[in-house]
């Protein structure tokens, strides 16, 4: 885990240096385009984090092993932090590019909805005292909450939005063709990989904490008996 910590820290530093020292300025947006290297990897990490919640919630409901719920809970918290940063970095990018921090278009609204669902997820967990019941209810909400992600991702294709369609996952005549210059594309891919490594580090750190906290509560309950 210490190893992962240093790999992700150095990776993030390396990407930062690459982005700010080597990259040319994008033609139409200018300097604020650099925010893309935070925003897009954070989006993908949010998707992955809540996908992990989805998978481990199903696993918990199926096998009823507490460890699955601990992983789901850890991933949901990390995902929520990334989701908040997606909304913030997006808003900060929107001001110089669109001329506004926020609009109620389909992409932005469904992303805010995802954030609110997982805020509710933690409120639900806090409101239940029984650990098994907490896990059961949270798993159901975690599965439902994840279903918003395909909607978010497809919102720019299904509906008319201010937010532009996907650059990275653009498909033209059945072939993947990201509409971005190679000079800007490679650092984006690197940032995504580094941020996913960083996510795994955060997930493990948070999972350790969760395991220890549950063990502590167990011990406290035993001593009270």
């Amino acid at each position: 885990m210490l190893y992962l910590e240093w790999v992700s820290f150095l990776g993030l530093l390396g990407c930062g240096l690459w982005i700010f020292l080597k990259l040319p300025i994008e033609a139409s947006q200018g300097f604020p385009q650099k925010i893309m290297y935070l925003h897009v990897p954070s989006v993908i990490t949010t998707y992955l984090a809540f996908f992990v919640v989805f998978i481990f919630s199903i696993a918990y409901l199926w096998k009823r092993e507490l460890v699955f719920d601990q992983i789901a809970k850890a991933s949901a918290e990390v995902g929520l932090v990334f989701c908040a940063l997606v909304l913030l970095t997006g808003a900060i990018w929107g001001k110089p590019t669109w001329g506004t921090y926020w609009v109620w278009d389909a992409r932005l609204t469904t992303t805010l909805l995802l954030f609110l669902i997982f805020m509710g997820y933690f409120l639900l967990r806090m409101s239940v005292n029984d650990r098994d019941k907490e896990a059961r209810l949270a798993s159901v909400l975690g599965i439902i909450g994840f279903l918003d992600i395909p909607i978010i991702h497809k919102s720019v294709e299904w509906w008319r939005t201010l937010h532009q369609p996907s650059t990275l996952f653009k498909v033209e005549s059945g072939q993947a063709s990201p509409s971005i210059s190679p000079e800007l594309y490679y650092p984006l891919v690197a940032s995504i990989i580094v941020m996913l490594v960083f996510y795994i580090y955060l997930l493990l750190l948070r999972y350790q904490t969760e395991k220890r906290t549950d063990r502590l509560n167990q011990l406290l309950a035993d001593t009270q008996d």
């Binding site: 930062g16 300097f31 604020p32 650099k34 925010i35 935070l38 925003h39 940063l85 913030l88 970095t89 900060i92 990018w93 001001k95 110089p96």
Partner: peptide
Amino acid sequence: YVVAAYGI
């Protein structure tokens, strides 16, 4: 804007 985004 870039400083704010990276800073946050």
